[in-house]
Simulated scan of single mutants.
Amino acid sequence: MSSDTSSRDRVYQVSSNRERASHKLRYVEGSAPASGECRLCAGSLAQAGKNDVPVTVQTAGSEDIARLAFFEKQLYNNDAYSSLFFYQALRQWPSGFLTIKSDEKVAGYSLVVPLEGSRATLMSLLIGKSFQGQGLGQVLLEQAIESATADQWHELELSVSPDNAPAIKLYKRAGFQSVNTVKDYLGPSEDRLIMRRTL
């Protein structure tokens, strides 16, 4: 794995506008609104205009954790990843733990963790409520894929609710293909569609 993190920083222009030791895997669909439009990928870089603000994707640091834990609690309440989980992730998977910042403010994160062999999984991708609808989820997903490629993973996997059409569309646009649906993947009645792409 590469230890050079500074080379992964990316700057874009976009329109401004979980406390237990065990955790469930959750994915991008957790932030999808009931209206059917994915709040992570709503909006577009092409819509950037006079209110443009700098957006940076970089490896996470301990100074980001309080903010990420706050976003988790906002969106997932009792199922939220805790600060403890994020500190563990920072120690165990530093190169796969990215944050996205909008105007220098932490706006969300992605976490890619190893599977067996040369495979990895996109364990989580989240954009905070106040930053949704700006296209940041799409930018972060693209950078998570790029980071996984740089870490020399050959395949990236994720799971998503079979009913979450907007998130599935986002993943397909990023090159993921549906593999199979696993019943009770995250517990009773929590089925998930498994998707993968080669890197």
Rank of each mutant, 00 (worst) to 15 (best):
Q58F: 01
E116A: 14
L98N: 04
L136G: 05
Q138C: 10
F86K: 11
Y76V: 03
F70S: 12
L199W: 02
L68E: 14
S44D: 08
A80P: 13
L170M: 15
A148C: 00
N164I: 03
L75Q: 12
S124N: 11
D79K: 10
G137E: 10
L122F: 03
L115F: 10
V160S: 07
P114Y: 12
F85V: 01
S83C: 01
L40V: 07
N78L: 04
L141A: 09
F71N: 01
D79N: 10
E116N: 13
Y81I: 02
Q13N: 11
L193D: 05
L45S: 06
Q74P: 05
K101E: 15
G49Y: 00
A165G: 15
E190T: 03
L199T: 13
A150N: 05
G36S: 12
L126H: 05
S7P: 05
N51G: 04
T149P: 06
C41P: 04
D52Y: 00
V113M: 14
Y27M: 05
C41Y: 06
L125T: 12
V11A: 11
G30C: 13
V139F: 01
E116C: 09
S3E: 11
S161A: 13
A150L: 12
S102K: 08
G96A: 13
V14T: 02
E19G: 14
L193H: 08
L170A: 13
W153M: 07
R67M: 08
A80N: 08
L122G: 02
A107R: 05
S161Y: 10
L186P: 05
V139A: 02
A107S: 08
T59L: 00
L170T: 15
L199F: 04
E155L: 09
K105G: 00
Y87V: 11
L75M: 11
E104V: 05
P94F: 05
D191M: 02
L90T: 09
R119S: 09
F70T: 09
C38F: 01
Q47K: 09
S159Q: 06
R192A: 14
S7R: 06
T121Q: 13
G137A: 03
L126S: 03
G135K: 00
A165F: 12
C38T: 05
S16Q: 03
R173A: 14
A60Y: 01
P166T: 14
Y27P: 04
Q88G: 06
L45Q: 07
S6C: 01
T121G: 02
S102Y: 08
I100V: 10
S83E: 13
A60V: 07
L45A: 11
G96Q: 07
E190C: 10
N51V: 01
E157Q: 14
A46D: 12
V55D: 00
T99I: 10
P114T: 11
R119A: 14
L111A: 02
T99V: 15
C38M: 02
A66H: 09
M1A: 11
N51Q: 09
M1V: 07
R119K: 14
A42F: 07
G96R: 04
P114R: 15
D79V: 07
I127W: 04
A150D: 08
V28H: 14
T99E: 05
S189G: 01
S110D: 04
V139C: 04
F70I: 05
L40H: 08
E104S: 10
S147H: 06
E155F: 05
S35F: 03
S189L: 09
E37H: 02
L111F: 03
R10N: 09
V106I: 10
